[in-house]
């Protein structure tokens, strides 16, 4: 086919127009660092793994406040008559069949965070048989992936207190937040007809907005391993502990100071964080930053799509007209069949 090469060339010209939208993806801003500032009033939690005794009082406290008795706690914050019926339904604790009481195995089966446990304690035994604990819950990232990807703004980060909150009334249940969170945090109610996303909101929904009294877990902790406060104060505290105990903490870093662009929840630990369920490939900029830069470069001011659209209209209109004139010698009546017939004699149009 002799025409094929020519077609291909033309094809690539057109494709270049179309791809123009995406071809501009590599200016350096794509690789820029996370520039987002922390709110000075951001609240957070600080967990010192070396102080934790693994009693899991925090887990049970959270379970009680945010799962079992969630309804009565929320009623204190929002009056029941102000809640719509789906919200009421959402508040009823419903256990999946496999989690219901089983007389043969009457204990709780908790492996990871799930729709019941927004907060869990995991154990790591190092080669010298030392035991280390780690508390896992939402990190309340400063530039959260989950907020960035949620298509309907069901997840939001409060600009003042920094809490990453969830609104079931908006959520469509697409689970993109689960896909994108680098800490594997948001969980979903799989065994429920009206499912929602479950994740830590620093007890904002249950204990009230801007609660200064602390969260369920921080109030329950008997050793002060996890404490609640403003991020700036917590960070100072953490740095102080490091300088008071040189060599005690892993690489003398505060985990969450920079990880994933910085998080409101921060950690100290004696062992490498990769043993505690944090991925080594975590970067100091949030992946949300990377993807937002990419999206906003492609769609900057809508120039690319509008430009492509105008080009398309011009080219397509021109081609259709050319094609119609080409066939104008054909007689035609009102019958639609023959209107389409106009194309029949065409020999490739070029």
């Amino acid at each position: 086919m002799k025409t094929s090469r020519r077609n291909f060339l033309k094809m690539s010209v057109g494709a270049a127009t179309a791809i123009g939208a995406t071809a501009s993806i590599l200016p350096e801003e794509v690789f820029a660092a996370d520039k987002r500032e922390f709110s000075p009033d951001a609240v957070g939690m600080f967990y010192d793994s070396t102080k934790c005794i693994g009693c899991q009082a925090c887990v049970i406290s959270c379970y009680e406040i945010n799962f079992v008795n969630r309804q009565s706690y929320i009623d204190n914050v929002i009056a029941p008559e102000d809640q719509n019926f789906i919200e009421r339904e959402d508040l009823i604790p419903k256990l999946a069949p496999e989690d219901q009481f089983n007389p043969e195995r009457p204990w709780l089966n908790v492996q990871t965070n799930d729709y019941r446990f927004r907060n869990i304690i995991q154990k790591y035994v190092d080669p010298e048989d030392n035991v280390h604990f780690i508390k896992h819950q939402c990190m309340h990232c400063n530039h959260p992936e989950c907020v960035s990807v949620c298509p309907v703004t069901a997840l939001t980060k409060d600009p003042v207190d920094g809490v990453v909150d969830y609104d079931a009334n908006r959520c469509i249940g697409c689970r993109y937040c689960q896909i994108a969170c680098p800490f594997f945090i948001p969980k979903f109610e799989w065994k429920r007809a009206v499912p929602k996303i479950v994740k830590c909101d620093m007890c904002k929904s249950t204990l009230g907005a801007n609660n200064i009294a602390g969260t369920g877990c921080t109030n329950a902790c008997p050793t002060g391993a996890v404490i609640y406060g403003k991020r700036v104060d917590l960070m100072k505290d953490a740095k102080q502990r490091i300088s008071n105990n040189p060599g005690k903490y892993f690489k003398d870093i505060v985990y969450g100071e920079y990880e994933n662009g910085g998080t409101d929840v921060i950690y100290l630990s004696a062992v490498d964080y990769k043993h505690l369920g944090f991925d080594e490939r975590m970067e100091h900029i949030s992946f949300a930053e990377t993807s937002e830069n990419l999206i906003h470069t492609i769609y900057k001011y809508g120039i690319a799509p509008i430009g492509v659209f105008i080009a398309l209209v011009t080219v397509i209109k021109g081609n259709i007209n050319k094609h119609k004139n080409h066939d104008d010698t054909d007689s035609h009546d009102n019958n639609p069949n023959t209107t389409i017939d106009k194309n029949k004699k065409n020999k490739g149009g070029n």
Partner: peptide, 28 residues
């Protein structure tokens, strides 16, 4: 997608401008 998403009755949010989320590729 309607089978897959958990809360399809909330999909109308795609047409509520205040909820538009231009950071999300999924929105687009």
């Amino acid at each position: 997608v309607m089978v897959d998403i958990g809360r399809p009755w909330n999909s109308y949010n795609f047409f509520v401008p205040s909820q538009w989320q231009f950071n999300s590729a999924l929105f687009e």
